[in-house]
């Protein structure tokens, strides 16, 4: 357990582990009559044949997952899903001299980690802003420090790092501290990504976001994940999950994310709010 409600586990899935890349996700089913839950991949090891996932306990299915003892198995694990992050397609020349800033919120910190690690291993300068409600909910602090140039913690109550929102931190870094970045990436709750994009726009900073939409199959079959990007309907599962933040209709995405909320509350669980972030 990383916090009382966030757990991390390594899952044995050799084929998945050898194909996984930064930016991708997977789908699990906790039990034979459970839902298909999209979760981000927070690390992977070809050698071990394992992927690491981080889950926040927010409903029935995620409670089952967080209650697993070592050695227990999911009913199903499938992936990797989605398109890998843009930078994985870039050449060393294209990446050379680039400066990235990641904005991570809550459980969204976990999928940021393999991206930062990937870039760091290739000598790209990476700063990371991690936001959480309070100190006890900060995850991946040590791991992240080991692979980024600068880590900036933000908490709502000021119990660790900067007291305030990640967007205020981003603005401070660029406008007051004179930091220069070529690319921002925001992963976290939809509302955080929405405001991260507004801030990035103000700073004229390109920003990529990773959308945690509803999904059933995760392979382009159902269309539950559809989002409007640059005025066009796109499927987050196969065309995303990463999109240019400037183009995403966040208000629609947030509304669609809540589509089954009343059903979930009746069933006393909320595990369909997305990728477990």
């Amino acid at each position: 357990m990383l916090t009382p409600t966030i757990c991390r586990m390594k899952v044995s899935a050799p084929r998945l582990a050898s194909s996984a890349q930064p930016g991708q996700f997977l789908i699990v089913r906790a039990s034979e009559n459970g839902e298909r839950i999209p979760l981000t991949i927070s690390d992977y090891s070809k050698e071990e044949g394992t992927v690491t996932i981080v889950t926040q306990q927010i409903g029935a299915s995620t409670s089952v997952i967080c209650g697993y003892e070592q050695g227990e198995s999911f009913a199903d694990v499938v992936g990797p899903l989605g398109v890998p992050s843009d930078f994985t397609e870039m050449s060393a020349e294209e990446l050379a001299g680039k400066r990235y800033i990641f904005i991570a919120g809550g459980v969204g910190t976990a999928p940021v980690y393999p991206q930062v690690k990937w870039l760091h291993e290739r000598g790209v300068a990476v700063d990371v802003i991690v936001g959480a409600k309070t100190k006890d909910l900060v995850i991946y602090k040590e791991e992240m420090e080991a692979v980024c140039d600068n880590l900036y913690l933000c908490t709502d109550d000021g119990s660790a790092g900067f007291k305030g929102l990640v967007t205020a931190m981003l603005e401070k870094l660029v406008t007051e501290d004179g930091k220069q970045y070529d690319q921002a990436v925001a992963i976290g709750p939809m509302i955080m990504m929405k405001f991260a994009v507004l801030t990035a726009k103000k700073l004229e900073l390109p920003i990529i976001v990773s959308l945690n939409t509803l999904m059933v199959d995760g392979t382009g079959m159902c269309g539950a994940c559809r989002v409007t990007v640059a005025g066009k309907t796109r499927f987050a599962c196969v065309e995303g999950p990463e999109f240019n933040g400037y183009d995403v209709d966040f208000d629609e995405a947030m509304r669609r994310q809540g589509m089954y909320r009343s059903e979930e509350q009746e069933a006393d669980h909320k595990c369909k709010i997305g990728r477990g972030r």
Binding site: E35, R36, V216, D217, M221, C222, G223, A224, R226, V227, T228, T233, E252, R255, R256, G258, M259
Partner: peptide, 18 residues
């Protein structure tokens, strides 16, 4: 893209497979 619009695939997959 309003809430309550589904593809037949989603509706049927939820009910049949799921």
């Amino acid at each position: 893209n309003l809430n309550g619009v589904f593809s037949a695939n989603e509706f049927l997959t939820r009910n049949n497979l799921m």
